[in-house]
């Protein structure tokens, strides 16, 4: 709690800095793409949010595992805190994707494997959050959502392959992976990296904040309970 309290402003500040610099650089200081025009610049929101959306689920998975194995209470809350942030990022990725797709592919939505995978990821997040909401006893809720998260992860990966099998798609190949820099000129690459770092830090800051809130809420409950018993 103390450690996270000391870190939080720094992480938040760094996130803000990266985002401001990255986005301004990306939006105003890069040339338009010769094929895609100015629309390409939505990449600075689209790619980082998509990245964080996936990593958010990973964080939930790891936190759930820690909860199930070590029964570390805070890890359950981290998983709980990460879910709404993750789903928001998923929605941002989907929406910016749609906005980008409209001028590029001439359609707001296509059942392309990546888009579909993200829609499915959205469904998984939704179910996970709904289960947290539905169960009153916090420990039971943490246990059950952890089990769901693990089973869900397996099925999410299966879905990903199933979707690839189902439609080979029109999405451009991954625009980011470390060895594919040649797909993108450095003028886009550096601000993009900055934006990705910014989104990751933002995610971290939000999860920390939400976890701290959650911890405080639980402390309050414990204190109220003590009051009532005394």
């Amino acid at each position: 709690m103390q450690v996270s309290g000391r870190f939080l402003p720094w992480v938040a500040g760094l996130a803000a800095l990266c985002l401001v610099v990255g986005l301004i650089w990306g939006f105003f200081l890069t040339p338009d793409d010769y094929r895609q025009g100015a629309t390409v610049k939505i990449i600075f929101l689209h790619v980082p949010s998509a990245l964080v959306a996936i990593n958010g689920w990973m964080v939930m998975l790891v936190a759930s595992l820690i909860w199930l194995i070590r029964r570390h209470h805070v890890s359950a809350l981290v998983a709980k805190a990460a879910a709404p942030v993750g789903i928001t990022m998923t929605v941002i990725a989907l929406m910016t994707g749609a906005i980008w797709g409209q001028p590029m592919w001439g359609t707001w939505w296509a059942w392309d494997p990546r888009l579909t995978s993200f829609l499915i990821l959205f469904m998984f997040y939704l179910g996970y959050i709904a289960l947290w909401q539905a169960i009153e006893d916090p420990d039971t809720a943490a246990d059950l959502t952890s089990v769901l998260c693990m089973v869900g992860s397996v099925f999410a990966i299966l879905s990903r392959y199933a979707v690839l099998f189902w439609n080979q798609g029109l999405h451009q190949g991954a625009s980011l992976s470390m060895d594919k820099q040649q797909h993108m000129s450095d003028t886009y690459w550096y601000p993009l990296v900055l934006c990705m770092a910014g989104f990751m830090l933002l995610f971290l800051a939000l999860v920390l904040l939400r976890t701290r809130t959650e911890v405080r809420r639980r402390r309050l409950q414990a204190l109220i309970l003590r009051e009532r018993m005394a």
């Binding site: 209470h73 916090p138 911890v215 639980r218 414990a222 204190l223 003590r226």
Partner: peptide, 11 residues
Amino acid sequence: LPQGGFDEAFL
């Protein structure tokens, strides 16, 4: 005092 209580872990 509710020692085993799940919220007690946070105090």
